[in-house]
């Protein structure tokens, strides 16, 4: 493999990895606060992709506006899931919320089949993003650069929010001790809603960029990326936002590079994620950047 080819794969991996990372952040934030694996998160991602499809392909809105509508709509759906499926179970055993999460996931997928139809639909990519140009001998489309760039900017903004603002402080505090955080005047439901909103917003952005990269949408498109992003979150250390991004990138690189270097393995592409999960659970169960969760009060 020559250097140019390698760079192609590198940028490809960066793109895929940052999309996994964006989705993984939603898992990790909700898990960090509620100790809940939001199984419906992959389906929220799917909704984001569908919304942008309807806005831009069906209703012919400009992409920027379509993306805005898709993100807003997905945030509303994410908040609704929390309000309807999780909040009533706040005091209940954790397993109840988990079962509820699985139920919501099936519900959204099947509702999507009914409402959107089960047929995959093609997404029309904006030509501007697909005009190949060459950079130092590497042929690229703007989309390939845009995806990781947008992802990194968003993650940087999110980290700033978590480590530099009052709401971020409350989030970090709740993940350790809900009762004490409440005693300081924090409305826990508001902060939880905020985590769902941010997670869903990022999933929508990932869904939009996914629909641009792999230009079609279908009701079950969230399952595999959702699974992998969850693995990425565990790999990076569930509860840690930088960890989620790191896990996503790791997964993106493992997937792309293993297929690039060993083309014969391409059939096993989806298995690498699970292999990674097994390895990290054996070697460092708390993940790359995870803290011990037993400390939780």
């Amino acid at each position: 493999m020559d250097a140019n080819m390698f760079m192609q794969h590198f940028i490809n991996a960066l793109g895929l990895g940052s999309l996994y990372g964006l989705i993984a952040i939603g898992y990790t934030m909700v898990y960090g606060i509620l100790r809940l694996i939001n199984f419906a998160h992959g389906d929220i991602f799917m909704l984001g992709a569908y919304f942008v499809f309807f806005a831009t392909v069906q209703y012919k809105l400009p992409w920027a506006l379509g993306a805005f509508i898709a993100v807003s709509g997905t945030i509303v759906c994410g908040l609704l899931v929390d309000r309807v499926a999780y909040r009533p179970l706040r005091g209940a055993p954790r397993i109840s919320a988990l079962i509820s999460a699985i139920g919501v996931s099936f519900f959204i997928e099947n509702l999507a089949v009914v409402v959107f139809s089960g047929m995959p639909r093609p997404v029309v990519q904006p030509p501007l993003l697909m005009e190949a140009f060459s950079l130092g001998g590497i042929r690229l489309v703007p989309l390939a650069i845009m995806v990781p760039a947008i992802s990194f900017i968003i993650v940087a903004a999110l980290l700033w929010m978590i480590y530099r603002t009052k709401s971020g402080l409350a989030m970090r505090s709740i993940s350790f001790d809900i009762e004490t955080t409440r005693l300081m005047g924090v409305s826990v439901d508001r902060i939880i809603a905020m985590a769902f909103a941010i997670g869903s917003g990022l999933a929508a952005i990932a869904g939009i960029m996914w629909a641009l990269r792999y230009p079609r949408v279908e009701p079950f498109m969230g399952i595999m990326p959702g699974f992998k992003a969850f693995i990425a979150a565990v790999f990076g250390g569930i509860g840690s936002v930088p960890g989620a991004m790191l896990g996503g990138l790791s997964l993106g690189f493992v997937e792309i590079m293993s297929v690039a270097f060993f083309p014969r393995l391409s059939g096993y592409r989806d298995a690498f994620a699970f292999l990674l999960l097994v390895v990290i659970l054996l070697v460092k169960p708390t993940g790359l950047m995870g803290e011990k969760l037993e400390d939780k009060i």
């Binding site: 009052k166 402080l169 409350a170 001790d177 009762e179 005693l183 300081m184």
Partner: peptide, 17 residues
């Protein structure tokens, strides 16, 4: 009930939420 993973200053800031 100090938040052990937050700094002294962050613990105080939380009190001023």
């Amino acid at each position: 009930r100090i938040l052990p993973h937050l700094t002294t200053e962050e613990n105080l800031l939380l009190g001023a939420y």
